[in-house]
Simulated assay, not measured.
Amino acid sequence: MEILAFGAQTDEKPLIERAFEGHHDIHAVDVFLTPDTAPIAAGHEIISTSVNCDLGPAVLEALAAGGTRMVAQRSTGFNNIDLDVAERLGLTIARVSYYSPHSVAEFAWTLAMAVNRRIVRASTRTRDFDFRLDGLMGRDLHGRTAGILGTGKIGEAFTRIAHGFGMRLLGWDVSENPACLDLGMTYVPKEQLLAESDLISLHVPLLPATQHLIDADALKTMRDDAILVNSSRGGLIDTAALVAELREGRFTGVGLDVYEAEAGLFFLDRSLEAVDDDTLARLVTFPNVLVTSHQAYYTVDAVGQIVATTVDNVLDYTAGRRSENVLVPRS
């Protein structure tokens, strides 16, 4: 059986091909699944997708009509998939429930340190042989307060690093993580966490209840000199509201690896085109903002785990087995 993998990055393709070797043929393409590209999946019983693929009703209808019966998503997030429509069409949907939490947690800290210590500005200057320190002053994080919204596996890994920095730890989640409590974390209401934290990092899934978790009111609750980091899902932050606060000169730094309207932009080269997203265009002009292209998970360790789990999901499907990774079971 040949499997078609959409949205495969250049570094990812050989990992995908090696993982499927001896199991199934795999054809990995760099195009993303959209209503326009869905027809190329015709004749493929199984396809694999990335988090920025469109798996809305129109695409799922096209996949089902073309003979697709199983979608193996190469991510933990699945907010791009209409699960109700998939179930109605009899499509099996599986995801990767778990991969290295350290990849994302370490990258979140990379963003935090980069905006705190003005690394991008410093690097740009030294390339021009400008070695002044004006405007590059950061802050010690030791002794300051880290607020972690979401203390699952990734939030816990982020917390362990914060503990290593000697920071006061505040947490917010629907349930308390004993490992975080052992590190000295105090769980508090979201409003208190936002008001007292010097560094705020988001590690919650994107659900209807968490859409714009950081909205205009939440942003106004934060300290003027706070650092905000989002390496989870773009929709957790109301970006228009964030831009409005940045225009007022607020926040020491904002590090974003995700953006709520990133589909059609991230993972693509748009450097020779006019990008018509005015909000993103304004966002990247602020000197205290660093935007990266959803790369927090992108380590050989994490991607290796993602691909290995994707292979397992496909083998489970062909063998008629069901695992915890299945979101919509085989009908």
Results as ranks from 00 to 15, higher is better:
Glu2Gln: 09
Ile3Met: 08
Leu4Met: 08
Asp11His: 14
Leu15Gln: 14
Glu17Met: 06
Glu21His: 15
Glu21Pro: 01
His27Pro: 00
His27Tyr: 10
Ala28Pro: 03
Leu33Val: 10
Asp36Cys: 02
Pro39Phe: 00
Ile46Trp: 01
Ile46Tyr: 04
Ser48Ala: 15
Asn52Ser: 06
Gly56Ser: 10
Ala58Ile: 15
Ala64Thr: 11
Ala65Lys: 15
Gly66Met: 05
Gly66Arg: 08
Gly66Cys: 04
Gly67Lys: 06
Thr68Phe: 04
Arg69Ile: 01
Ala72Pro: 01
Thr76Cys: 11
Gly77Thr: 04
Ile81His: 03
Asp84Leu: 11
Ala86Tyr: 03
Gly90Phe: 09
Thr92Asp: 00
Ile93Asn: 04
Tyr98Phe: 11
Tyr98Lys: 14
Tyr99Leu: 09
Val104Ile: 15
Glu106Ser: 06
Trp109Leu: 06
Leu111Ile: 08
Leu111Thr: 05
Asn116Arg: 08
Arg117Val: 05
Arg127Pro: 00
Leu133Tyr: 12
Leu133Cys: 10
Met137Ile: 15
Arg139Trp: 07
Arg144Asp: 02
Ala146Met: 15
Gly147Ser: 07
Ala157Ile: 09
Phe158Leu: 14
Phe158Ser: 12
Gly164Ala: 06
Met167Glu: 02
Arg168Leu: 01
Arg168His: 08
Pro178Ile: 14
Cys180Pro: 02
Cys180Asp: 08
Met185Trp: 01
Met185Asp: 01
Met185Lys: 07
Thr186Tyr: 00
Thr186Ser: 10
Pro189Arg: 01
Pro189Leu: 12
Glu191Leu: 13
Leu194Ile: 11
Glu196Pro: 03
Asp198Cys: 05
Ala216Ile: 14
Met222Asn: 12
Asp225Met: 07
Thr239Ser: 09
Thr239Trp: 02
Leu242Cys: 04
Val243Asp: 03
Leu246Pro: 01
Thr252Lys: 11
Leu265Asp: 01
Asp269Tyr: 07
Arg270Cys: 06
Val275Glu: 09
Val275Cys: 04
Asp277Asn: 10
Leu280His: 08
Leu280Pro: 00
Val284His: 05
Phe286Asp: 01
Leu290Cys: 08
His294Asn: 10
His294Pro: 00
Tyr298Trp: 11
Asp301Pro: 01
Asp301Gln: 12
Val303Asp: 05
Val303Ala: 02
Ile306Gly: 03
Ile306His: 02
Ala308Cys: 10
Val311Asn: 06
Leu315Val: 13
Leu315Gly: 07
Thr318Tyr: 02
Arg322Gly: 00
Ser323Ile: 13
Leu327Gln: 14
